[in-house]
């Protein structure tokens, strides 16, 4: 328990250790710890920002979805309307066409009927004439009776 040079030695050793610690140990460790602290901080901030961005994007997506839904509904309604007008138009056109075809057919029928009637008239008159000819071949003058029959056929 004697106080001697050991004390001076310990003092020097203590000073050296402290100096070494201050120079080579403390700074790098604290620097690394500080850097990690900063990284964590910025990471947290980034996470927060990401979260808010995500929320915003979700909102935007919802909005877009709603918008497109509206648009789709509108398109469908338009299409329905257009389809019904088209059907109406087609109906009109068809009925007009039908009318036209009908009148045309009627006219044709009439024409045809007239023609047939005239033909028939001629044939009948010819037939009558033939009959009459054959009946009256001997007694009747063809010329005289032809005029008479011609007048008759006119009245038919």
């Amino acid at each position: 328990m004697n106080i001697n040079l050991t004390m001076i030695g310990q003092l020097i050793m203590f000073a050296m250790f402290t100096w070494f610690c201050m120079k080579f140990i403390w700074p790098p460790i604290v620097a690394a710890m500080d850097e990690r602290k900063k990284r964590i901080e910025s990471g947290l901030i980034a996470a927060e920002r990401g979260l808010s961005e995500h929320k915003e994007a979700q909102q935007k997506a919802q909005e877009m979805l709603n918008q497109s839904k509206d648009q789709a509904a509108e398109i469908i309604a338009n299409a329905g309307r257009q389809a019904s007008t088209m059907v109406e138009d087609a109906k009109d056109v068809a009925s007009q066409e039908a009318g036209r075809i009908k009148t045309h057919a009627q006219a044709e029928i009439e024409q045809e009927a007239n023609r047939a009637r005239n033909e028939l008239k001629d044939q009948v008159s010819d037939l009558v004439m033939q009959g009459v000819n054959s009946v009256l071949a001997k007694e009747v003058d063809a010329k005289v009776h032809k005029d008479m029959l011609g007048k008759l056929s006119q009245t038919l």
Partner: peptide, 15 residues
């Protein structure tokens, strides 16, 4: 044990 030697503890405390 160095700290049971007063030289060690006084060395530090004088520093």
């Amino acid at each position: 044990v160095p700290t049971t030697d007063p030289n060690a503890t006084f060395g530090m405390s004088i520093g």
